[in-house]
């Protein structure tokens, strides 16, 4: 879904690996086609984020950065966050926000000040 200069993606199903890769590809294509400056990925419906999905999120953030768009991942469940850290995945380079509203604030701020990258946005 496109909202102004941002793309909103809500992941609603437990994705198998090929579907996750297809989404990553599709999203990258859409950023290029629409010239979107920001991508908001809502993962609040995801009950599990394993290393594969985690890598897909990190790759999508990295690819969108190359295409001059900022990605913010929102809505991660607390149990998922606890598990990810124990798994050893810190999602370096992925910006996160608690919910859609805060994510949108982060995106608007990032688009207004493109040269002031917040901490933690260093490339992986």
């Amino acid at each position: 879904m496109k909202l102004g200069e941002f793309l909103l993606v809500s992941i609603q199903v437990d994705m198998h690996d090929k579907l996750a890769l297809a989404l990553q590809q599709d999203l990258t294509d859409r950023i290029a086609a629409t010239g979107a400056r920001g991508v908001l990925m809502d993962i609040s419906a995801l009950e599990v984020v394993d290393s594969f999905i985690g890598r897909m999120l990190a790759n999508t953030a990295a690819m969108s950065r190359v295409l001059d768009a900022t990605t913010v991942v929102v809505g991660m469940r607390p149990a998922v966050a606890i598990t990810l850290v124990e798994l050893g995945l810190s999602l370096n380079g992925v910006r996160t926000a608690l919910d859609v509203e805060r994510g949108m604030q982060l995106l608007r701020a990032a688009v207004r000040q493109p040269w002031e990258e917040p901490d933690g946005d260093t490339p992986v």
Partner: peptide
């Protein structure tokens, strides 16, 4: 618990892969 469910399901996903 929800956290324990998430941990064992995530471990299962890694090992299944």
């Amino acid at each position: 618990s929800l956290v324990d469910q998430t941990k064992i399901v995530t471990a299962a996903s890694e090992l299944a892969r």
